[in-house]
Amino acid sequence: MEEIIVADISHLKKSFGDNDVLKDISFKIKQGENLAVFGKSGSGKSVLIKCLVGLIEPDDGKVVLLDSDVSELNNDELNVLRKKIGFLFQSAALYDSMTVRENLEFPLRDLKSKPQQEIDELVLEALTNVGLEEAIDKMPSELSGGMRKRVGLARTLILKPEIILYDEPTTGLDPITSQEISELILDIQKKYNTASIIITHDIECARIAANRIIMIKDGTSIAEGTYEELSQSKDEFVRSFFNIKSRS
């Protein structure tokens, strides 16, 4: 069966003043594949993911998502593309002034033709997927860090995106909740056949959720492979992450 490439990133570069954050990043993702972009804090992972959705404009290189070149789209076309891409922020970025229900309904506001009953069903389905039906009328301030991440994930899922971008999905969570979130990412991939880019520095999250891992160091990709392949790597930098894991 022919593999469908849903994201093609080639020679991406981005600098802030004299600081070259992304020097030359290239990779492709197939439909239904989870790719972890792995590296130390400050290695340019979050900048990379923001370049993909046009939140940051890259200096050079090409980002093609779902056959659309992001740099060639006007604002309206970019907004149409963005609706097909889910983005889970590091802080979950829930709207403080809205309840969980309103947070989930917010991305659906353009679907005015849909009856309220159908919108309610979509909200409930998204919350059921993350196991938080009971939190529907709570405010974000009443939720724990893990619950906020789950609600953020439910909001990401509600538009049934074809690609999901996760920015540090397990950062700031305890190991048990981190594992639950990682398993949830895997479940979503299996259930909806979505492609995902998981930005992380949590090797356990990459092991559970990713089919393939790209390692970034100083703005360049230095290694690529499955968890098993990279754990056998002879590169000292790559091995250091796995050594920390085996020590813990």
Binding site: K50, V53, L55, N75, N79, V80, R82, K83, I85, F87, F89, A93, Y95, F106, P107, R109, D110, L159
Partner: peptide, 9 residues
């Protein structure tokens, strides 16, 4: 940013 990536201005 979350609003922007949801395709809302």
């Amino acid at each position: 940013d979350a609003m922007e990536v949801s395709g809302i201005n």
